[in-house]
Amino acid sequence: MTATNRVSVTCVGCAGSKCRETIRAGVHTNNPILVQVIGICSALAVTSKLETALVMGIALILTATLSCFFMSLIRNITPPRIRMIVEIALISVFVICFDQILKAVYWDMSKQLGPYVGLIITNCILMGRLEGFALQNPPLLSLVDGFANGLGYALVLAIVGCVRELVGSGSLLGFAILPESVYQTNLLFVLAPGAFFTMGLLIWIVNAASPPKPEKKP
């Protein structure tokens, strides 16, 4: 009883069932990669290993959540004519902060991710969520939306990273699963084409299992 109460209380700020719907949309029914097929450049580049894929996923969850929340906070005072510049500036601030922190405490990872953390700024998922969602919705719901879309992206990256690391190098998170003496490194999966195949198959499987519903006409 109390549990249900608490859930409904936390969700008042983001209009009840809309909250759950938003999470479902971001993670599954309107997943940025599987359904909208946007922002896949970085998804192809950083998924050769599970570890880099996870860190990149975390980076996107954090930056998407924060920028959606703050954009929604200032949505009513932002002059419409410069809103896109404001969106990009806001995204850049969070991405650069994350990049700096990564360089300070997690140097090896920052070296492996190379320019891709900085390139989150140009990731269309973030811009799309700010422009398409945060500008029309209250802060808390936008925060949930940013988080859900980041999570949707991170999950896909993790799955692709798993498949590529396992098939490509026979290991997971750097631990050898298949002994090196038996398993020959599969370059096809370590290099970019592996990402295309894995991602394509994943998109196919998910869309075949639950076909996207045709959009309702207003």
């Binding site: 005072i77 002059p79 500036a89 601030v93 650069i96 902060c97 700096q100």
Partner: peptide, 21 residues
């Protein structure tokens, strides 16, 4: 208003970035 907003927003962003860096 646009100019004022842009200036204030830009300054805030710059301050945050400077602090983190």
């Amino acid at each position: 208003r646009t100019l004022f907003f842009a200036a204030a927003f830009g300054t805030t962003c710059a301050l945050v970035l400077t602090a983190v860096s």
